[in-house]
């Protein structure tokens, strides 16, 4: 058995100071294997988004350790976390968060171009391929604002895959979509997980979505109840 992709040990996150402090994550310990597809379930306020934000290196934990690919990221500085995030982690958010003044293709290319400081032809080719894969080859040059909700979410998925990350974090990726678009998006994620062995961690309130994942983690009040 090889090392897990992610290893979380005693992870704690508190907001605020002293008496006013709220502890949102209360000593989580958790491994996620490479190539897994994990659903993160739990009532509202249980700490799902907070955990994804920390695993995405966008926020530092208050205590505990968090390793990915053998690198300790819990206490890494901003520059190191930014570079790590760019190469190894993709995000899909509930509200797509595309750059509004850019086309679908430009949005997908962004993670590669931001890393190299320029847009390479091969990166644009890969972006076009990814858009093709999410079924949007005919929307390449549309401005992000001119796409439907489901299309935006598929562009966001293509963007998350741009730098071939080992891990994709998705925070309620279908929360904002109708049933049919949600099913399409989920099909896409499962297909990518299968063909690319990209690891997914998906927070959701939808039991149907969770049931389609290989593994379910239940959170309640900042603790893992069952994994």
């Amino acid at each position: 058995m090889s090392d897990p992709l992610i290893r979380v040990d005693g992870l704690t996150k508190s907001f605020g100071e002293a008496e006013a402090a709220v502890t949102v994550l209360k000593g989580l310990t958790l491994d996620i294997a490479e190539g897994d597809m994990v659903a993160l379930l739990g009532p509202s306020g249980s700490g799902k988004s907070t955990l994804l934000t920390i695993l995405g290196t966008l926020m530092r934990p208050s205590a505990g350790s968090f390793q990915m690919l053998g690198v300790e990221l819990g206490d890494a500085d901003d520059a190191a976390r930014t570079a790590f995030r760019n190469s190894h982690i993709g995000f899909v958010f509930q509200f797509h968060h595309l750059l509004p003044d850019f086309t679908a293709l430009e949005n997908v290319v962004f993670p590669a171009a931001a890393r190299r400081g320029r847009e390479r032809g091969e990166d644009r080719q890969r972006a076009a391929m990814l858009l093709d894969r999410v079924g949007l080859s005919n929307r390449r040059d549309f401005l992000a604002t001119k796409l439907s909700g489901g299309q935006k979410q598929r562009v966001a998925i293509a963007r998350a895959l741009m730098n071939q990350p080992e891990l994709v974090l998705a925070d309620e990726p279908t929360g904002n979509l109708d049933r049919e678009s949600a099913a399409q998006v989920m099909d896409l994620l499962i297909e990518i997980n299968r063909s690319e062995r990209t690891t997914f961690l998906i927070s959701t309130h939808d039991e149907n979505i969770a049931a389609r994942c290989k593994r379910q983690i239940h959170m309640v009040d900042g603790r893992i109840e069952s994994a």
């Binding site: 966008l58 995030r85 760019n86 190469s87 982690i89 509004p100 962004f110 993670p111 963007r159 730098n163």
Partner: peptide
Amino acid sequence: EIGIMRAMGASRGF
């Protein structure tokens, strides 16, 4: 948007 760029791995310098 700037937050998104940062989340996508754009550095502060960028």
